[in-house]
Simulated scan of single mutants.
Amino acid sequence: MGMIDLDDLRELKNDFATELRRKNRSKQTIDGYLVRIDYFIDYLIENQLPTTVPEVTRDHLGSFIEHLLTRPNKRTGEPLAAEYVRGHYRSLQQFFKYLVAEEIIPTNPFDKMTLPDAPEKLVTVPADDQIRALLTQCEGTDFESLRDTAIIRLFADTGGRAGEVEGIDLDHLDFEEDSVLVTGKGRRPRSMPFGDKTRTALRKYLRARAKHPKAKNDEPSLWLGRQGPMTAHGIRQMLERRAAAAGIDHIHPHLFRHWFAHNWLANGGQEQDLMMLAGWRSRQMLARYGKSVADERAKAAHRRARLGDKL
């Protein structure tokens, strides 16, 4: 067995993962870092470049980012999305920041590098009629209709993330407060309140769930499918299936989050309250969510203010 090179990227990425676990980062976050570091390592090997950290230079990192920016998407043939490339940049930047902090390298090759520009891409907020059409497709008293109605209403009523809604257990529901406890990014717990229609949908689903074969043996997961607990992927597939039946081109869980943020602000909700409900720490998220209809909200606010009519 050969000697292990402790300065090799392949060894150090595992040390970085250990540090992330120590900081209580989620498995999904850690896996995302490791996948991007692996892409960089593969690039170095394919181009016969060094994988020993002290030998990795700013030019190596820059050429890798340039490679990503010019590489075609295998599915569409179009260049990779700039935001996707920015994700690689940020992950490697954090990795090398860790290497400097651990004094494995004296200086950070990312110093004086800049994040690749990404053209602004506005997310289209679903129309109210589209969400109503989804709910219409779920009308019925069978198990899947009751379950899907509850899921869609919970997404729209709370603005919860896909992973948050997927991870709900039975004992996370509080019908005295009409709220549900979820675990957000950074493993931060958050209570999401819901309204009367969502409460009714959840209660109907729970009665059907109690008779489901997979509900035996004290299964804690709230959402059940044919094979057992539903995953976030299963929830996305359900939404795609319901959207196709409703004649809606495309809808996924995060679009409900944009719909929730837009409607909260459009109905006069406070920004600080929205940040608490959505689990945001940065005010930048307020500008991002529902931005495609921000003009609509501004015009509505102008009509309510009627400033010129006061003269």
Rank of each mutant, 00 (worst) to 15 (best):
G2M: 10
I4Y: 05
D8W: 05
D8L: 05
D8S: 14
L9F: 04
E11W: 09
N14M: 04
A17Y: 10
T18D: 10
T18A: 14
L20I: 02
N24I: 01
R25M: 03
Q28I: 06
Q28K: 15
T29C: 08
T29P: 04
T29K: 15
L34N: 14
Y39G: 07
Y39D: 13
Y43I: 02
I45Y: 04
Q48N: 14
L49E: 14
P54M: 06
T57I: 05
L61F: 11
F64H: 08
F64Y: 15
E66G: 00
R71L: 11
K74I: 00
R75A: 12
T76S: 15
T76W: 12
P79D: 15
L80C: 03
E83S: 08
G87W: 04
H88N: 14
H88V: 03
S91P: 07
Q94C: 02
Y98F: 15
Y98N: 11
N108P: 07
L115N: 08
D117R: 15
V123C: 09
T124R: 15
V125N: 03
A127D: 11
D128R: 13
D128E: 15
D128V: 10
L134K: 08
L134G: 10
C138A: 09
E139W: 03
E139Y: 02
T141W: 09
L146Y: 08
A150H: 05
R153Q: 10
A156M: 11
G159Q: 05
G160L: 01
L170C: 06
D171V: 00
H172W: 12
L173C: 05
L173Y: 02
E177P: 06
V180N: 02
L181T: 05
L181K: 12
V182H: 01
T183I: 11
T183M: 12
T183V: 07
R187D: 09
R187Q: 13
R187A: 09
P189V: 00
P189L: 01
R190F: 02
D196F: 01
K197Q: 13
K197E: 13
A201N: 06
L206W: 09
R207H: 09
K211V: 00
P213A: 14
K214H: 09
A215R: 06
P220A: 04
G225R: 06
G225M: 07
G228C: 06
G228D: 02
P229N: 05
R236M: 04
M238S: 07
E240K: 12
E240S: 12
R241V: 08
A243M: 05
A243Y: 03
A245L: 12
A246Y: 08
P253F: 03
H254R: 10
L255I: 02
F256R: 12
R257E: 03
H258E: 13
F260M: 13
A266W: 13
G268P: 05
D273Q: 11
L274M: 06
S282L: 03
A287Y: 09
R288V: 04
G290W: 04
S292L: 12
V293L: 13
A294C: 09
A294W: 11
R297L: 11
R297D: 10
K299Y: 06
A301V: 03
R304N: 14
L307R: 15
G308Q: 14
D309C: 02
L311M: 11
